[in-house]
């Protein structure tokens, strides 16, 4: 397989699962206006659940479904902290995220007979993932098949999200996030709306974790570190470059943003940027993405000025 194709497939296999992560963060961060730090926790729990269950011999698709539910439960926990215990939004996520690290150790511990906890699970050659179930023919086509499966899953989820947030209840959730006071005055149960959105968001992130870790075929406690930033950067880059006119437009922008983000990272590393300094690259990217609107407005004023001069 040509070098360029393998690089593209490499980008897609990391980028496509992270679309789900970015969409999950988008639901809380943009729609609900809830800076939810649970994301890394539910990502980790999703990955651990999927791989541990597969290691124990459960069907990979069933394991992935359980990972999705596990992520959702993390979100539910955060929402309970917020709605019932009235803890500030930011801290709710931090609590769940901290808890998730220990939860992951316990979950992964089930795969070992000799120890109660362990911080690493990696799949053997015989263990099937949701991708390897469909591996036919020559080995060189495997990344391609993997990418196709990922794209199909993400596409289905995206259509489901688009439909849900267009229904009566989805609309009520969006209204709650934008203006809670108005939501209450219009008879929306804002507590339940918050809970639903958090559960959906973290279920998506759990699914993303399961898909990402099955691609790696291994997971440890540190796998999820930095993924909150990845999701946020995808949203910011996507919205800045591809626009945010309507809900559909936003969903597509975020997906493209996620792919673009991984393209930049992968290409920089391929070009010789030391991969140990990845975090520096992340920081630079986010700073750039956040400054895009400023640059755009500067360009616009410059264009206007040119126009005025032209007519003068």
């Amino acid at each position: 397989m040509p070098y360029i194709v393998s690089v593209i497939l490499n980008i897609l296999t990391s980028g496509v699962p992270c679309i789900l992560l970015a969409l999950g963060i988008f639901i809380t961060y943009r729609l609900l206006d809830f800076a939810d730090l649970t994301a890394e926790g539910s990502f980790l729990v999703g990955g651990c659940l999927a791989l541990s269950l597969i290691k124990l011999g459960v069907n990979p698709y069933l394991s992935t479904l359980v990972a999705l539910i596990g992520g959702g439960l993390c979100g539910y926990l955060t929402s309970v902290f917020y709605t019932k215990l009235k803890i500030p939004k930011l801290l709710c996520g931090i609590i769940t995220m901290t808890l998730a690290t220990s939860l992951a150790l316990i979950i992964m511990g089930f795969t070992r007979a000799d120890e109660p906890f362990t911080n690493l699970v990696s799949l053997g050659i015989k263990d099937q993932t949701i991708y390897s179930v469909f591996y036919f023919g020559e080995k060189m086509y495997q990344p391609l098949i993997k990418t196709v499966i990922m794209v199909v899953i993400v596409f289905i989820v995206m259509v489901a999200i688009y439909y849900f947030f267009g229904t009566e209840y989805g609309m009520a959730i969006r209204a709650t996030g934008l203006n809670e006071r108005m939501g209450k005055a219009q008879g929306i149960n804002t507590k339940r709306a918050n809970i639903t959105a958090l559960v959906i968001s973290n279920a998506l992130i759990g699914l993303a974790g399961a898909m990402y870790c099955q691609d790696l075929r291994s997971v440890d406690v540190k796998t999820s570190t930095g993924f909150l930033v990845v999701g946020l950067a995808s949203i910011l880059i996507g919205e800045a470059i591809f626009g945010k006119r309507s809900f559909k437009n936003k969903l597509i922008s975020i997906s493209l943003g996620s792919i673009l983000y991984f393209t930049i990272i992968t290409v920089s590393i391929e070009l010789g940027f030391p991969s140990e300094l990845k975090n520096m690259l992340y920081a630079i990217l986010i700073a750039l993405a956040l400054s895009i609107p400023l640059v755009q407005s500067a360009i616009n004023t410059y264009k206007k000025k040119r126009k005025v001069e032209h007519y003068a």
């Binding site: 609309m171 009520a172 209204a175 203006n179 108005m182 008879g187 929306i188």
Partner: peptide, 25 residues
């Protein structure tokens, strides 16, 4: 306070139309 700024006029009206009703998912 009374309207949701990031939603269209139509969406705001749709929500108001269902005030005090079940919002079906």
């Amino acid at each position: 306070m009374g309207t949701s700024g990031d939603m269209s006029v139509l969406e705001n009206l749709e929500i108001a139309y269902r005030r005090g009703r079940v919002h079906s998912p």
